[in-house]
């Protein structure tokens, strides 16, 4: 069977590559939108405890909705394909990003913020130069968790005829016992897993780069 699977990959290389890339695009678009919304909500609700509680509760509730149900319920509103796929994935992706952004910003030492204000940074400068860089490592962890989750949830989007590798899993499972059905499912699953690993590695590299850049600055001195 192993050889068969290998042959399957070779024979369908072009299709599989295209599906994988589409899957990646779905994930990246969803995570990007979720990061934008989540970070914005976290910043907006920073000094408003009630707004913050509402945001956290709503996004937690999103997470508890069973995936099949959520995708299905979106069909009457958004039809099939990209619309419900991205919407549902963004809804799932929000919580870890919102949560970690809040945790990251809360974790900044208030004395450091006080000192920054006290020596004459404007509120925007305090946020951009002090709070955001210090919250970033925690925020990045949220983004990595979200990305892995989204890679796997995106496969279920095939239920609403969504793009990506999910289609192969669904069709393969529906004709299990048929010729090459197992290979079809296995190949798609392996690619989903590989995609998850690659995206996570890329985010880790991003983390290293954003940390490493600081190191490089530091070697060059003050005015860099």
């Amino acid at each position: 069977m192993g050889l068969n699977l290998f042959e399957y990959f070779l024979r369908n290389a072009d299709d599989l590559l295209e599906l994988t890339l589409t899957h990646a695009v779905v994930v990246i678009v969803s995570v990007a939108i979720a990061v934008t919304l989540g970070v914005a909500a976290a910043i907006f609700s920073r000094r408003k405890t009630r707004v913050r509680a509402v945001c956290l509760n709503v996004t937690s509730t999103f997470m508890t909705i069973p995936a099949m149900a959520l995708f299905g319920l979106l069909i009457p509103l958004l039809g099939l394909g990209w619309g419900p796929t991205i919407t549902a994935l963004v809804m799932y992706a929000l919580l870890p990003i919102l949560h970690n952004t809040i945790a990251g910003l809360d974790g900044v030492d208030p004395r450091v913020k006080r000192a920054a204000e006290g020596i004459g940074l404007t509120p925007v400068q305090v946020f951009r130069r002090v709070e955001l860089p210090l919250a970033w490592p925690v925020m990045l962890i949220g983004i990595r968790v979200t990305t892995l989750m989204t890679v796997s949830s995106a496969a279920i989007a095939a239920y609403v005829n969504g793009p990506g590798l999910g289609g192969d899993i669904f069709t393969g499972l529906s004709r299990i016992g048929g010729a090459g059905a197992i290979n079809q499912v296995l190949a798609a699953v392996i690619l989903v897993v590989l995609l998850g690993i690659i995206l996570d590695l890329l985010l880790q590299v991003l983390g290293l780069l954003t940390g490493a850049r600081r190191q490089r600055f530091s070697r060059r001195g003050a005015a860099s």
Binding site: R111, V112, R114, A115, G118, L134, R214, A222
Partner: peptide, 11 residues
């Protein structure tokens, strides 16, 4: 201020 309040991410 007490404990200096230095920016921990800057040299």
């Amino acid at each position: 201020i007490q404990d200096a309040g230095l920016f921990p991410h800057r040299t």
